[in-house]
Design a protein around this nucleic acid. Structure first.
Lengths: 146, 146
DNA sequence: TTAATTGTAATTAATACAGTTACAATCAAT
DNA sequence: ATTGATTGTAACTGTATTAATTACAATTAA
């Protein structure tokens, strides 16, 4: 299928809301930075609101972060948008009568879980604040060299 | 889309070939353990052959591991079947005129890479031999309790 | 020589996703 | 209070990825 950019786009939205907190933040404005449609932005923001990451008000273009950016990690955003789904897919339909088919799902599931948690720990190491500061540094670097 | 089970099925195939190396290993037999069609098995085996993990001979139902199972890790199989693709997808189309849109791809790409490598290191910790031995232990445990 | 098998291409059906359209509910400014 | 802008949400569409299927030439082994 088409690959999901929900996670990346949601991070984008949250960083945008924080960096541009002093201007008017309609879904239209945010959409122009993400380069998608305002409906897609509103849909993602609904998910972020349900996850307790932002606060919005219907009819008013004033979304706000619901928590300090130091207290939001990339893992929080990942769970909000993708849930705790497997990172590597098991084949759930294998022959239970066979030694391999009857045991591989349990065994592989354990290994996959360990790899998933390792990745999630890394995501949990980075806060929205870290990301924003890094973006601002990269921008300054661009401005002096360009 | 439908989720890919190539990685899991390929691991299954390799474990099956090793455990049942003394019987006739047609794609039909392997398919009955994976519960899929022989064509799917042959297609996956073609990929594993190209990656240097198995040796096959056209017309002959005798696939063999090309390396010692101690020298094949889950990561080797992952790279063979999925390649070194991103584990988390960037949105590659963001507004370069915006501070966020113009920098987030680079910054997020770095964080994603770190998380991906963390997961890959875990996959690289497990060999096909480990997997096979764990499957055989689980099977024995089943047999004594059932 | 022949039956079985591999290797591979082409096609199909299912599924997940962003994007789009449409519109009711709500807000903010007057 | 009225009005124009905005959010929230549902329904639908187009696209891309995948396993499964069909078909068949090439190869093997008895």
């Amino acid at each position: 299928m088409r690959v999901s950019t929900r996670f990346s786009d949601s991070i984008h939205i949250l960083a945008f809301i924080e960096i541009y907190k002093n201007i008017r933040l309609s879904s239209e404005v945010i959409a122009s930075s993400v380069e998608t449609s305002p409906v897609v932005i509103r849909r993602l923001m609904g998910v972020l609101r349900e996850a307790g990451l932002i606060a919005t008000k219907q009819g008013s273009a004033e979304p706000k972060l619901a928590r300090d950016p130091k207290d939001i990690t990339l893992l929080d955003i990942y769970f909000a948008t993708e849930g705790n789904k497997p990172l590597f897919e098991l084949d759930k339909k294998t022959n239970p009568e066979c030694i391999v088919g009857g045991n591989i799902q349990d065994v592989l599931g354990d290994y996959y879980e360990q790899a998933k948690v390792a990745a999630q720990r890394k995501l949990n190491d980075t806060t929205l604040q870290d990301l924003i500061e890094t973006i601002l540094v990269k921008q300054k670097a661009k401005e002096i060299s360009g």
